[in-house]
C-alpha cells in the first residue's frame, strides 16, 4: 500500500510546485513568498507522524531542489529534519488546541528557513543575515495564513490514502 502514499506525495508535490511558481509567485508579502511544500510537509508530519513526516520532507524537498534549480539536497535535508521534528513534537502533545497547527507551521517554517540559510552559508553562498531573518519571518507569517486552507486538504488526503494498519 506504499503506492498510495506515493500517489499522495506526487500529487502534493505537483500541486505545490505549480501553485508556488504561478499564483503565489505574484502574491508576495513584501517580496517574500510562502513555502508551500514545507507547509505541506509540516501538515503531513502533524497528521501522519514523524516517520511519514520525514519521508514526505525528503521527497518534497528533493522536488523543490530539482524543479526550482536550487542546490540539490539542501531542501531535502532541511525538510526531512522539519518533518521528523514536527511529527515528534506533535506526538508529545496530548491536548492539542485549534491554534496548534498555525503555531507549529509558523515556528517550523521559521526554523526551517533559518536552517536552509545556514546550510547555504556553509556551502559558500553569500546570504545577508538581515535579509535571511526578514524573509524567514515573512514566509512563516505567510505560511501561517495559508494553514487554514492547506491543512484540511492535506489531512483529508492523508486519511484517504493511509494504508490500512499504519500506526501514526
Amino acid at each position: 500500500m506504499i503506492w498510495k502514499r506515493g500517489i499522495l506525495l506526487f500529487l502534493l508535490a505537483l500541486t505545490g510546485l505549480v501553485l508556488e511558481t504561478s499564483v503565489l509567485g505574484v502574491a508576495t508579502l513584501d517580496g517574500s513568498k510562502p513555502e508551500l511544500l514545507l507547509l505541506m510537509t509540516i501538515a503531513l508530519a502533524m497528521n501522519e507522524g514523524p516517520a511519514f513526516g520525514a519521508t514526505a520532507g525528503f521527497v518534497l524537498g528533493i522536488a523543490t531542489d530539482v524543479f526550482l534549480g536550487l542546490p540539490k539536497g539542501v531542501s531535502a535535508l532541511v525538510f526531512t529534519a522539519v518533518g521528523y521534528g514536527v511529527g515528534r513534537a506533535r506526538a508529545q502533545m496530548s491536548a492539542p488546541t485549534a491554534w496548534l497547527p498555525i503555531v507549529m507551521v509558523a515556528g517550523a517554517t521559521l526554523g526551517g528557513m533559518l536552517a536552509y540559510g545556514g546550510f547555504g552559508m556553509l556551502l559558500g553562498e553569500h546570504v545577508s543575515s538581515r535579509e535571511l531573518f526578514r524573509h524567514a519571518a515573512l514566509s512563516s507569517a505567510y505560511n501561517a495564513l495559508l494553514t487554514p486552507f492547506v491543512f484540511p486538504i492535506v489531512r483529508a488526503l492523508g486519511a484517504r490514502l493511509r494504508p490500512a494498519g499504519v500506526v501514526r
Binding site: F58, G61, I62, D65, P71, K72, G73, V74, A76, L77, T80, L123
Partner: peptide
C-alpha cells in the same frame, strides 16, 4: 540528502 548535496 548529504549524498545528493555532495553529488551536486
Amino acid at each position: 540528502s548529504i549524498l545528493v548535496i555532495t553529488l551536486d
